[in-house]
């Protein structure tokens, strides 16, 4: 069973039709890179999966269970149960500035009344992202790369089955992207299922097992990195790659 199934997803902002009939599936352990020009609807698509945007048509199933079917949303508890299977990492990190790193990680599991040993998880995850020493620091005192690694650890605290990344390195200075991509690569190697909207073609090529090219609210082309980068079928893909692969 596919972990995510999206069928005929449509989304408009007013008269602006931003997503036109998007259909795709995500299998367990997939690492999917979504590439495409700015304004093509990548963020909107990702945000629709986790109910940060309400779609106007289509079905989204998470682990077999639809939380929106043919444009009709299910009850709030059904939506919440489905979206809780996913975590999300934002371009702007969106850490809670008034909480320490530790509290950023622990707030959500505590609020959810998780029984697990939250403190142990915190220290494991901070170690995993290389920030054990920053437990008591506030986000403001961290570099962008460190903040994004905290944001990844924070998302992992909720034990998501799927992680969504919306241009996780686009707000970073170039010299800081590596440390974040490294954490993501480690997650991929541990078989975390991930969907990553990215401009990092190197990452898409070497870490993803599927690459999706979007343009104008549509999936123009999808395939393995070798297929998409080595032998693109569509003119729009070729033009985009010509501009973005140096």
């Amino acid at each position: 069973m596919a972990l995510i199934e999206v069928q005929n997803l449509k989304k408009s902002f007013g008269d602006n039709e931003v997503l036109k009939n998007i259909t795709f599936t995500v299998e367990k352990n997939d690492v999917i890179a979504i590439i495409g020009p700015s304004g093509s609807g990548k963020s909107t698509m990702l945000r629709s999966l986790i109910h940060l945007e309400e779609i106007n048509g289509g079905t989204v199933k998470i682990a077999g269970e639809a939380f929106v079917e043919q444009g009709v949303y299910k009850r709030p508890d059904v939506i919440k149960k489905a979206t809780a299977k996913m975590g999300m990492v934002f371009q702007q990190f969106n850490l809670f500035p008034h909480l320490t790193v530790k509290d950023n990680l622990e707030l959500a599991p505590k609020m959810a009344g998780k029984k697990a040993d939250i403190a142990a998880m915190t220290s494991d995850l901070l170690q995993k992202v290389g920030l054990s020493a920053k437990e008591k620091a506030y986000p403001k005192s961290l570099s962008g790369g460190q903040q994004q690694r905290v944001a990844i650890a924070r998302a992992l605290m909720m034990n998501p089955e799927i992680l969504l990344f919306d241009e996780p390195t686009s707000a970073l200075d170039p010299e800081l992207t590596g440390e974040v991509l490294k954490v993501m690569k480690d997650l991929a190697e541990e078989h975390m299922t991930m969907i990553v909207v990215t401009h990092e073609m190197g990452f898409a090529r070497s870490v993803a097992n599927k690459v999706v090219f979007m343009d104008g609210g549509e999936i123009v082309e999808a395939g393995t990195p070798d297929e998409l980068f080595g032998n693109p079928q569509h003119e729009r893909t070729k033009a985009f790659l010509a501009k973005n692969l140096k």
Binding site: T83, A84, M86, G87, M88, F96, A155, M158
Partner: peptide, 13 residues
């Protein structure tokens, strides 16, 4: 920032 509300929402708050 609206990102604060979104982060809280995706964390299940």
């Amino acid at each position: 920032d609206k990102g604060q509300y979104e982060a809280a929402k995706v964390l299940g708050l």
